[in-house]
Amino acid sequence: MTMSDDAQHRMEAYLGRLRQRLRGLNDHDAREIVEELRSHIKDKAGASGEVSSVGVDAALAALGSPEELASQYMTDHLLARAEVSRSPVRILESLFRWASLSLAGFLVLLTSLVGYFLGIVFILVAALKSFHPRTAGVWVLPDGADEFMISIRLGFGTAPPAGKEVLGWWIIPIGVGAGCALVMLTTRFAIWCVRQYRTSRALPPC
C-alpha cells in the first residue's frame, strides 16, 4: 500500500495531537491507542490500494476531533479503573489525571485529598495515643479572648500550656471509627463523582 507524503503528514499531525492529549495515560497504553488508530486510518483510507489525502481526511473526519477522541479514552479509562478498584491510591491517581482535564476534576481531587488527609490523621492519632498518652488527642486551645480552636495533635513535643485535651482514651475508638469512615466516604464520593462526570457528558452521536 502506498501513501502520499501529504496524506502521511495529515495523519501524523492528527495522531500527534491525539498523543499529546493522552499524556495522562501511561506510555504503553497511549502508544497502543495511537498505533491502533494509525492502522485504522490506513485501512479506512486505503481500501482502494492507495492512501490519498482525501481518503485520510475522510477517515479523520469520521473519527472526530483528536481532542474529543482523547477525552473519551481518558474518561472511559477513569471510569473503568474506578469501577474495578476501591483502592484510595488508585482512585487518587485517576483523580490527578481527571484534574489535569477539567476544573470539576480539580475540585473533586481537592475535596478527596482533604477527606483522605483528615481520615489518615484521625487513624494516626488513635494509633499514637498509646505512645503519647498525655499529648496525643483532640485539644481545645484558647485563641484570643473568648475564642477557642480545636487542634488534632499527634502528640509529638510538649503539651500546649493553656489547652485541654477533651476525649482522653476515647480518641482510640473514635479516631479509628471516624478515620475509616472518612476514608470510605471519600472513596465513595470520588467514584460517584467520576460516574456523574461520565454520564453527564454529552453523548457522542451513535
Partner: peptide, 16 residues
C-alpha cells in the same frame, strides 16, 4: 456507531 465511539469503548472493555 461512530468510529470515535467504538475505539475508546473497546479500550474500556479491555480494561474491564
Amino acid at each position: 456507531v461512530s468510529e470515535g465511539t467504538v475505539y475508546p469503548l473497546l479500550s474500556r472493555l479491555k480494561a474491564l
